[in-house]
Amino acid sequence: MRKLVLLFLLTLTSLAEAATGVFPDSTFNNLDYGLYWFGYGDSWQKAQPGYTNAYYSSTKPTVIYIHGWQNGSSVNKNRETFNRLDAGGPNLDLAHAWLTAGYNVGVLYWNQFADEGEVKDAEAKIWTATGPRAMRWRNASGAYASGPSQSAGDLLFQSYKDNLAGYNGSGIRLLGHSLGNQLAIVLTKKISDAVTAGTVNSKLLPKRVALLDPFYSNQGKSYLGNKWTGEVCRTYVSELKTKGVIFEAYRTSAVTSTIFVGDNNTGLMNMTAFSEVKTGYFNSTQQTQKHNAAVWHYLWSFASNPPLITGTSNQAASASTPDSRITTLMNGTQKLVHDLGGTTKEPWDDSFKLYAR
C-alpha cells in the first residue's frame, strides 16, 4: 500500500509535463498571465483590451482552455499549447479542426502561479489570494516573488471579461484540465454572478464546460470555511446548470481519483455528461500520460464524428457531440464507459456503453 501511495504522489509531481510552446524568455522572467488567442501551428497573440488581435473575432464561436498544476514549468520555460506530442498525444495541431470550423481558440494561462511543488498550494490560489503561499509566482530562475492581491480566479475573470467585452458570437466553451477544471467552474460562477448583477453581457456566460480528468484535493480548506474544493464545485455546478450551462466530464486516469491523493467527487461527476475513457495505449505506471490524455483526446475528437453507443445509432459524448445531446446525457441517469477503441489513440474508432451511475 505504501508503494502505491508513493507511486501516485510521484506521478502527481510530474503532471505539469505538457507540450512546449515557443514563448520569449520575458514570458517566464516576468509575471505573465491571462488570455492568449491562437492560430494555426501554435501561432499566438496575447489578448489585450482595445487592441486588434489577428486570431480573434468577436462574432465567432469560441473555445478556451485552462491548464492545471505546472510544477517546474517556469524553469523549463514550458507552456501548454495545442501540439501535445510531449504529453503523449499526436504530433498534430489540435486547434486546427476548431479553427477550420470557424472558432476562436484561446488559452487562459496562470502557469507561474500554478508552479508549486505542492499541488494544494497551487489549488488554493484558484480560490483565495491569502492561502498557504498567497499569490507568489515563479520565474525562469526558479525564484518566487510576491504576487498580486487577487486570486487566480479573480485575475482570469478580469482578463476574460475585459478581452471579451464586445463578444457577440454563438457561444463560448471552456475546457479545464486537472486543477484547471476548478478554475473553469469558478470562472463560470463569477461570470454568471456578473451577468445576474448586470455588469457583464449574457453572451459571455459559457454555454458549455468540459472537465478533463478533473482534480480536487481531499479534506476541508480553511479558505472555504472548511468545505472541500469538490464540495464547493458541486454547489456551483448545481446552480450553473439552472442558468443553462452544459457540463461534461471525462476521466482518463486514476491519479485524480485515488483515495490517497484526490477526491473522485462522484457527486459532481453524476451532475455531468460523464465518460470514463480508456487509455490502453499506456501502461498502468504511465499515469502522467493517462492524465494528460484527457486534453488531447478531447481536442482531437472535435475532428471526428461523435462516437456512438455500441450497437446503437445514439451518440456518446465528445467535443463534436452537439450541445443538445450532451444536455440529454447530462440530465440522464447513466454514465458512459469506453467500450471499443480504447487501445488506440485515434478518437474515430471509439464507442461507449451506458452504465448506471
Rank of each mutant, 00 (worst) to 15 (best):
Met1Ala: 14
Met1Ile: 04
Leu7Ile: 08
Leu10Thr: 15
Thr13Ile: 05
Ala16Gln: 13
Pro24Thr: 04
Thr27Asn: 09
Tyr33Asn: 14
Leu35Phe: 02
Tyr36Cys: 09
Phe38Ala: 10
Gln45Thr: 09
Lys46Cys: 10
Gln48Thr: 15
Tyr51Pro: 00
Tyr56Pro: 14
Ser57Asp: 15
Thr59Gly: 10
Pro61Arg: 03
Asn71Gly: 07
Gly72Ser: 13
Val75Thr: 14
Asn78His: 03
Glu80Arg: 00
Leu85Trp: 01
Leu92His: 11
Ala95Trp: 00
Ala95Lys: 03
Ala95Thr: 04
Trp98Asn: 10
Gly106Glu: 08
Trp110Asp: 12
Gln112Thr: 09
Phe113Ser: 12
Asp115Ser: 13
Asp115Gly: 09
Gly117Asn: 11
Gly131Arg: 07
Ala134Leu: 11
Gly147Val: 09
Ala152Ile: 15
Leu164Cys: 07
Leu164Trp: 06
Leu174Arg: 01
Leu174Tyr: 04
Gln182Phe: 02
Ile185Phe: 02
Leu187Glu: 07
Leu187Gly: 08
Ala197Cys: 05
Thr199Met: 05
Lys207Glu: 11
Val209Gly: 02
Leu211Pro: 12
Leu211Ser: 07
Phe215Ala: 05
Phe215Gln: 05
Asn218Met: 08
Asn218Trp: 00
Gln219Arg: 04
Lys221Ser: 09
Thr235Glu: 05
Ser238Gly: 14
Ile246Asn: 14
Phe247Cys: 01
Ala254Val: 10
Gly262Cys: 06
Gly262Ile: 06
Thr266Leu: 15
Ser275Ala: 15
Lys278Ile: 04
Gln287Met: 01
His297Leu: 13
Leu299Ile: 07
Trp300Val: 11
Leu308Arg: 04
Ala317Gly: 12
Ser318Thr: 10
Pro322Tyr: 00
Asp323Ala: 12
Ser324Glu: 13
Thr327Phe: 11
Thr328Leu: 12
Gln334Met: 09
Lys335Leu: 05
Leu336Val: 01
His338Arg: 01
Asp339Arg: 11
Gly342Trp: 09
Thr343Met: 05
Lys345Glu: 11
Tyr355Ser: 03
